[in-house]
């Protein structure tokens, strides 16, 4: 469903991605690991359409309506409506907007894009309560401003809640494990695992092997200096954990 070829991208004049290629099929989970500054976060932001990043060459094809289309032509909100979801490394705090209205507006935007009727407030609340159980979030979080005053773990759980609500086809999880203690990590990982299916794919960007003990990847890629330099199965992550990255560079 995703085919990235020779992708180059820069931010503020600095080239970060230098010819990255990656193919992701439905049902697969890919982990992208790599040293600091290798371009891991840039990749997920470029795919989500962050305006600060400029693609200078290469292509990204993504399956929309059963045909592979040029993803880079779509505005960020359209990409999201077409099933791309980015779980932020640093979820943004939005004072003044409640979690509930944020989630409801997002959910109904996607429904509307698909040509369905928006869900009423009551129906949506019921739907939401089910999803919240997945990440063990209490209903009172719905009436609080988005991520404002949330702990690191609560913010990450909130990302997974948003993911559960929007049920994306392609989820990009950017360092979702960073800053989580072991209990929070387990909750987040369980939430993610329950959202895995044959129809959707996930790309986990992570620093450490730790997350991969909970979410088993089909492929592990090493990203260094803006390119994927090594690809393997889950065992590659264990090897990286033992030996570091130096032997590959």
């Amino acid at each position: 469903m995703l085919d990235i070829r020779n992708l180059h991208a820069k931010i503020e004049g600095k080239e970060i991605l230098k010819g990255l290629s990656l193919k992701v099929n439905a049902g697969e989970v890919h982990a992208i690991m790599g040293p600091n500054g290798s371009g891991k976060s840039t990749l997920s932001k470029v795919l989500a359409g962050h305006p600060a990043y400029e693609v200078t060459s290469g292509e990204v094809k993504y399956e929309i309506n059963f045909t592979m289309q040029n993803l880079l032509e779509f505005a960020p909100d359209v990409r999201a409506k077409e099933g791309i979801f980015l779980a932020f490394q640093y979820p943004v705090e939005v004072p003044g907007v409640t979690n509930f209205s944020f989630l409801q507006t997002a959910f109904n935007s996607v429904l509307q894009h698909q040509g369905s009727e928006p869900m009423s407030e009551g129906e949506f609340r019921e739907f939401l309560y089910q999803k919240m159980k997945l990440v063990q979030m209490k209903p009172e979080y719905l009436d609080r401003a988005v991520n404002v005053g949330f702990s690191g773990g609560e913010k990450k759980r909130n990302e997974i809640l948003q993911m559960a609500v929007l049920s994306p086809r392609l989820a990009l999880l950017d360092e979702t494990d960073s800053g989580l203690d072991i209990d929070a990590l387990r909750i987040v990982a369980e939430g993610v695992n329950q959202l895995r299916s044959k129809q959707n794919a996930m790309v986990l960007v992570t620093h450490y092997q730790r997350l991969l003990e909970y979410i088993k990847p089909d492929f592990v890629h090493v990203l260094a200096n803006g390119k994927i330099i090594q690809t393997g199965d889950a065992s590659l992550a264990l090897e990286l954990d033992k030996k570091g990255y130096d032997w590959l560079l």
Partner: peptide, 24 residues
């Protein structure tokens, strides 16, 4: 960053600005 957060959840620019202004 706030606007991009909205966009990344499928909420268009017009709606995002409106919600943020309303929240303000």
């Amino acid at each position: 960053d706030e606007i991009f957060y909205f966009l990344s959840r499928g909420i268009n620019q017009f709606e995002a600005v409106k919600m943020l202004a309303f929240g303000y």
